[in-house]
């Protein structure tokens, strides 16, 4: 990931937008974050030309580690063609001139919002998460002076109080996304608002996982092959979501599905949230119950779709 020349494609800004000093600062932060898995490292986050909350943390990480030889994939909600993913991909094409791809297996760097790709990632890949609220304890304790102590002294009882309340009221833990995890048997961490379906993928993942919260100015990381455990009780173990039907387009099971409303009479279908995974399966000849409708519905390679 070396960047030999420091100019963006159009020459207006430095390569990958950020100046080299800032990139060095962020890389130092990343090293610290990797050294202490799950610990939120404060960093001098910069104002980016995108709005806070729209991925500025992930963008700063990507900008700091991307090199000319990288191939970038950007997804939002699992899909490459959602507007903000398109916008971020365009940004990096413009300021870094790197190759971009929609194919998970071809990417060396994947920036994501709210999902982990279905395909198992490899040691040669880095997954960068956009994080809106890095503090897993914020709903219970808004004060940072206090939450930093809770992390420092491993005082995590409060987190289980929340889970206890869920079970006592609803019979189960009702957190469905941004489900807190314990990393490397030490820090409790927000996995970012991915569905809890994706939580198990974080554990012992071969790829490096980096998390950037731009507005809150925090970076954290999970090194490859690190233990990641979703919080639970011994007698109420963690359960990821399950879908009773396969993807209506590619027939995939054990994947996260999006509900697509088809008309105002209650007709709907469930399709893969990971658009590349679905495309790849369909290309390989897998079909779901409504595969024939797929083309009509715009589930085709969508570059240039209005």
């Amino acid at each position: 990931m070396n960047s030999r020349a420091f100019h963006s494609v159009d020459g207006t800004y430095n390569f990958a937008y950020l100046d080299e000093q800032t990139k060095r600062m962020i890389r130092r932060t990343l090293l610290k974050a990797i050294a202490v898995p799950g610990y939120q490292v404060p960093f001098g986050g910069r104002e980016m030309p995108m709005a806070y909350g729209w991925g500025t943390g992930g963008i700063q990480i990507t900008a700091s580690i991307i090199g000319r030889d990288d191939t970038l994939k950007v997804i939002d909600q699992g899909a490459d063609d959602t507007t903000n993913a398109v916008s971020i991909r365009r940004f990096f094409r413009r300021v870094a001139g790197v190759q971009t791809t929609e194919e998970t297996s071809k990417a060396t760097l994947i920036q994501t919002r709210h999902r982990i790709p279905e395909k198992q990632l490899t040691e040669k890949q880095i997954l960068v998460y956009q994080v809106p609220q890095p503090e897993p304890l914020w709903k219970l304790e808004p004060r940072e002076v206090e939450t930093r102590k809770l992390h420092a002294y491993s005082e995590y009882g409060l987190m289980h109080v929340k889970l206890y309340e869920d079970i006592s009221r609803h019979g189960e833990i009702i957190t469905t996304y941004d489900y807190p995890v314990e990393v490397n048997a030490r820090h409790i961490m927000s996995p970012s608002p991915i569905p809890k379906f994706d939580n198990p993928k974080m554990a012992m993942m071969p790829a490096l996982q980096l998390f950037g919260a731009g507005r809150e100015k925090r970076i954290y990381a999970i090194p490859p092959y690190t233990r990641v455990r979703s919080l639970d009780f011994d007698d109420h173990p963690f359960k990821p979501q399950r879908f009773d039907k396969p993807c209506a387009l590619c027939g995939a099971e054990e994947v996260f599905l999006d509900e697509v409303i088809l008309d105002d009479k209650g007709d709907h279908m469930f399709v893969c949230s990971d658009s590349d995974h679905c495309r790849e399966r369909r290309a390989a000849g897998h079909t779901g119950s409504r595969a024939s409708d797929a083309a009509d519905m715009g589930f085709v390679p969508t570059e240039g779709l209005n």
Partner: peptide
């Protein structure tokens, strides 16, 4: 904003109790 049971159970969870039935 936490139930009576949760209030009483908190100290147990704070020192590592992780069995819901026992805490309750």
């Amino acid at each position: 904003n936490v139930s009576a049971g949760g209030n009483v159970g908190e100290r147990l969870m704070a020192v590592g109790a992780r069995n819901y039935t026992e805490i309750r």
